[in-house]
Design a protein around this nucleic acid. Sequence first.
DNA 1: CTGTTAGCGCTTTCAT
DNA 2: ATGAAAGCGCTAACAG
Lengths: 349, 349
Amino acid sequence: MEPSADSKRATLAQVAELAGVSVMTASYTYNQPDRVSDRARSKVLDAAARLGYAGPDPSARSLRRGSTRTLGVVMGEHLSYAFEDPEAVSFLAGIADVCAERGYGMTILPITGDADDVPRITAAAVDGFIVWTTSDDDPVLAAVQAMKRPAVVHGGPAVRGMGLVGIDNRAAAHAVGAVAFADARRPAVVSFPLSRERVSTIVGGAGLADVLFPVTRERLAGYRQAAEDAGIAWRDVVVAVCARNDAAEAERVVATMLASAEPPDAIAAMSDQQAAGAVNAIRAAGLVIPDDVAVTGWDDAAVAAELGLTTVAQSLREQGAACAHAALGGNPDSQTAPWSVVRRTSTRR
Amino acid sequence: MEPSADSKRATLAQVAELAGVSVMTASYTYNQPDRVSDRARSKVLDAAARLGYAGPDPSARSLRRGSTRTLGVVMGEHLSYAFEDPEAVSFLAGIADVCAERGYGMTILPITGDADDVPRITAAAVDGFIVWTTSDDDPVLAAVQAMKRPAVVHGGPAVRGMGLVGIDNRAAAHAVGAVAFADARRPAVVSFPLSRERVSTIVGGAGLADVLFPVTRERLAGYRQAAEDAGIAWRDVVVAVCARNDAAEAERVVATMLASAEPPDAIAAMSDQQAAGAVNAIRAAGLVIPDDVAVTGWDDAAVAAELGLTTVAQSLREQGAACAHAALGGNPDSQTAPWSVVRRTSTRR
DNA sequence: CTGTTAGCGCTTTCAT
DNA sequence: ATGAAAGCGCTAACAG
């Protein structure tokens, strides 16, 4: 076996010695090649090849430079679940675009909801943090804040010293709710969970106690306004809180609502996945969209176009990119992203 | 403003000094709390709180310990594209499961296809690497190998000194191809790209020159066997190579094939997304599945069940987890994962 | 239970 | 163009 196949990593000092130059010349060869003579450079690269030296040790370099060239992304309770959420996935893609362009790595920080989340944040070797939408009381926020690095929250909550990127959820919900609830007498809402406990329930609007996820809270407030604009009291609006953001649970819960004594004739959901589940349940019940029941989604995902869903369009990908820029320390660190209501055939207007 | 709001990070030495103890006592407080008296510990934590000290610096710790507690995931050419591929996403979720469980971070390494990919690998502060399926000639493989850390490739190619996790693609393709091509006279294949150039073409099986992606190569070999078992020469099998793994491109290419003089009567695809595109094209052409054209997919994604697609089931999630274990240095580092053919209504048998 | 010493591998600073 | 010295912040190893 040649020396290059040696299974231990060599150090810069060893390379320098074998090349017959000082450590600094070896270092310059990697960091400022122009500053080194051709002869010296090739001697160094030669020695490196012989020793199987792959370049300066990343940890040592980070320590010395005070920067890791890596961004940390904190992904709410269940990381594996985050990857199943198409919204979250395009958000990640937006971050990835910026990281790739700037030569940065991107560390995903798995948050489990357990006590060991905080140490994991604390132990993350990153230059900045991006926190995916979470609840007001998430201990992870304080942990990130304590790291004293550039940090942004997507969606919410707003935290002192951290940026905030997202849309005006209340305004968007009000707008799409107005379309969803047009000519409706019994509007209903299919909601994301209210707190990190993620319990499913069906309640009247008045029964909603503390909504700890700011995004959910704002959207509910917008839907409430829309309902009241349509002359319906919030306490008369049925809100179905789903533990997960998927079509299956939404389909079940909507089927239940449709089988009740006072079935809804308009349903505003919080994602296109949920809306798709609602569509399935409505069709299964032999009802017609939008005549019997109007439906709206959120995000304008592929499924929304396929099903003709009226929905709220926003670019999670661009918001991801904005977060990355903020976490890199550039840019004004907070920004409100654009949104629009896309009208299709699932609503009466 | 209190001192805790000070925007610069304090050091362990400063904490120790303020607490009136040695640096090591402070260090133990974070790393081996049991070894420290209650009094000393609380003095340290007190001082830390006052200085806004969030815990030992991750880079310094990594350097000293020689370990970063982070796994690197190398995601082929387009990272943003990787997140759009549901297969890749469940694979990531599997890695995430293991990382969360073991308290590890997970660094996604954005590979762009440019020359700066190698330096980015080289600069990654990780304890082990997981490489998502790539081509035989990908320079990233040598870069990872040079890092001399535990490494696994998912899918392929096999690399000396690195583990390999995946299914027997040839056998699986042979098996599902047998079902797809049953009673067919003009079988066709919808394929992934052949090389990292990702060019789209339609050729006879004999026209396939160098297939550089081992997974694609193996699947083509399996389909070939299946065709030949059915008495059809490989050169008579039309292979449509798609640049991207999505329904849209597959739909276009299948529409083209169906409009040709000798339209296929059986189509074996390489993903359920592609198969879904094929289904759309077939229906749009007014043909019946499986009577006029049989179709098979791959992966048993949600869409496969929805469309009644015969497909190959495998758990990318479990394979992701297996890769993570291997990259953590545990386990035998190579393993062949299970698969099965799921028969539904898109095929004649 | 606490402290001292040494040094992880590298790059910044300041010569030459 | 090259080099010597210093030290980034921390913890393993070894006393006391």
